[in-house]
């Protein structure tokens, strides 16, 4: 299968006067429909790498290629609609909109791309809320939910547009191991049913080991890239 996302010779240097290089010559390709995990110590550059993969950040040098197109040549509006259609984000710090209810937050990616929300979409949003175990609190304001509930809402939101790729940064950081297990089973299930590509950053080795591929980042370099053959 073809690569849905490719990173070519990515370097990232923060700062202009005091320069800190965070990523060194990263070359990675992700197969469509694969389930990948990225592990590494705190501060090793995982979030930085994910933001570059999600076209939110730009590398200091090197190319990000999505669907065969180099992103540095795309206009801001093209990137925005690419992100809206093709990527579901779960950020490390969950980032719901506090002015909206949980369900409205879940519907937000659809509303950004469409003028009206058909009933099927609302139903799917409710279904997703049920899948992450939040059907009881879906009309709560985002601020009236626990950290774990907010995180699960963010996962439902990332799934709503049925994107080709989900980028998740510590999506279960606030969850107990039982819920974590349930969520990963859910993500795995979606991966198998819809062929959605997953790239998940996690601290949890046990979780990482459930993925098809484990990439370990150490001090901005790829230290290990383990592909399971199944």
């Amino acid at each position: 299968m073809s690569n849905i996302l490719e990173l070519k010779n990515i370097n990232k240097i923060y700062g202009t006067t005091v320069k800190t290089q965070v990523l060194y010559d990263i070359n990675l390709g992700f197969k469509e429909g694969s389930f990948n995990s990225i592990i590494g110590q705190s501060g090793s550059g995982k979030s930085t790498l994910m933001n570059i993969m999600g076209t939110l950040d730009t590398p200091t040098s090197g190319d990000v290629v999505v669907d065969g197109v180099i992103t540095s040549g795309m206009r801001a509006s093209q990137l925005a609609s690419y992100r809206n259609r093709s990527i579901g984000f779960v950020f490390q710090f969950h980032y719901l909109l506090p002015e909206f209810t949980a369900l409205e937050n879940v519907l937000m990616p659809y509303r950004i791309g469409h003028k009206t929300v058909p009933k099927e979409t609302t139903d799917r949003a409710k279904e997703l809320m049920k899948l992450v175990g939040l059907e009881k609190v879906m009309n709560n304001n985002a601020t009236q939910m626990s950290g774990g509930q907010q995180q699960r809402t963010a996962i439902a939101r990332a799934l709503l547009n049925q994107p080709k790729m989900i980028l998740a940064d510590e999506p279960t950081g606030n969850l107990d191991s039982l819920s974590t297990g349930t969520i990963y089973d859910l993500l795995r299930d979606i991966n198998e049913r819809f062929g959605t590509t997953f790239i998940i950053i996690t601290h949890d080795r046990k979780i990482a080991e459930k993925a098809d591929r484990i990439i370990e980042i150490t001090d901005g370099r790829i230290n290990m890239d383990l592909m399971k053959n199944n």
């Binding site: 509006s77 925005a80 690419y82 809206n84 259609r85 719901l96 909109l97 990616p109």
Partner: peptide, 13 residues
């Protein structure tokens, strides 16, 4: 913060 999230999710400038 909210504008940032919306933009990450693809809202146009």
């Amino acid at each position: 913060r909210q504008i940032g999230i919306l933009k990450a999710m693809g809202i146009r400038n």
